[in-house]
Every structure is written in C-alpha cells, then in structure tokens.
Amino acid sequence: MFTRIFGKPKPEVNTLTALDELNDKLEMLEKKEKVLLKKAAAEVEKAKEFTRAKNKRAAIQCLKRKRLYEQQIEQLGNFQLRIHDQMIMLEGAKATTETVDALRTGAAAMRAMQKETNIDDVDKTMDEINEQTENMKQIQEALSTPIGAAADFDEDELEAELEELEGAELEEQLLQPATTAPAAPVHVPAGWQPTRPVSSKPTAEEDELAALQAEMAL
C-alpha cells in the first residue's frame, strides 16, 4: 500500500542539473537587463540633446522608446522572479521529497515495530502529506496568475518628465561660469617644436611572452 502512495524520489543529479540550467538562464537575463538599461540611458541622453535643439517632438519620441525599454526591463525582472520562484520551488520540492522519504522511513520503522498499523499514525501522516500538497498547489496557482497588461502611456506624465529635463538643463547652464574673452595669441618662434619624452612601454602580451620564453628556457 505504501509503495503505491509514495513514488520513487527524483535522482539528485536531475535536480542539480535543473538548478544549474536555471542559474544559466538567470545569468543570461541579467546580461540582457544590463544591455537594455544602457539603451534606456542612451535614449535619455538623446532626449536631452533634442531638447537643447528645441526639437520637442523628437525628444518625446526618445522618451517613448525609453519607456519601451523600461517595460522590457520590468518584464525581464518578472522573468527573473519566476526563475527564482522555480528554483525555490525546486529546492522546496527537494526538501519535501526528502521529508516524505523520512516520513516513509519513520512509518516503515513503526510498522516494523508494531504488528498492527495504528490508524491514528496513518491519519497523521496523511494529514501532513495533504498539507504539503496544498502548499505546492498554492505556489503553482500563484505562478500561473497572468501578469497584468501593460499600462497605456500617459501623455501628461511624459510632458511633465520633459519639463523636468528642461529644468535640469537650464539649471546646469546657469551654473556655468561666464565665458572670458579669447586670450591674446602667443608668438612661437618658427621651427620650434616641443620635445616629447619617448616612452613606449611593452604591452602586457609582450610581458607574457617574455615570461613564457624565460620559463621554457627558449
């Protein structure tokens, strides 16, 4: 009866392999997130440039693209969270499996000690198993909840953000010192050239090569 209720636990290698693969995917997602963050920052810089050039429409377009990148970044964050959840679930499932194994061992030991199975012990074991099963179901339900649809762009918010950028730009200009008149030209005697010290350092690769040759007695 117990053999049918408790299946064979998953081999350790499979769990570890899955965790390694999930870690690899997580790393890939993190790299992509960094790339998108760079692109978003680049769009902000472009928006500033267009603002200086009084091209409001183009600046707003850049901010829209920035929003798109930020949405992608948010989505990647959700993906990472899902992978983390799955890793936690895998580890939890592993712990659960080990617990069930321990319970089975305990149950088998009790069965060996007692000639008749005590119904109260069986009920207790089943209650615990049901509790674990319920927890797993809740986790799966939480994972299967769909992510809400992306919000619409708010034009007013974009306008406000643009005004903030303009304000920052203006403030930056006000802090600049006044430009001075160009200095008088300095007369340099004809044919005179400034002497530069010739310092050519060997590259790291050349150092490596020299060290290798020394070590190999070449």
């Binding site: 790291a204 490596e208 090569l209 060290a211 290798l212 190999m216």
Partner: peptide, 16 residues
C-alpha cells in the same frame, strides 16, 4: 605545442 601547454597552465591571455 609543449610551450603552449605551459602557457595554458600559467593562464596566459587568449590573444597570445
């Protein structure tokens, strides 16, 4: 080729 084996042991740069 033997020298390369030593270089790999030393952790020489990929370009070299």
């Amino acid at each position: 080729a033997v020298t390369i084996r030593k270089a790999e042991e030393k952790g020489t740069s990929s370009s070299l």
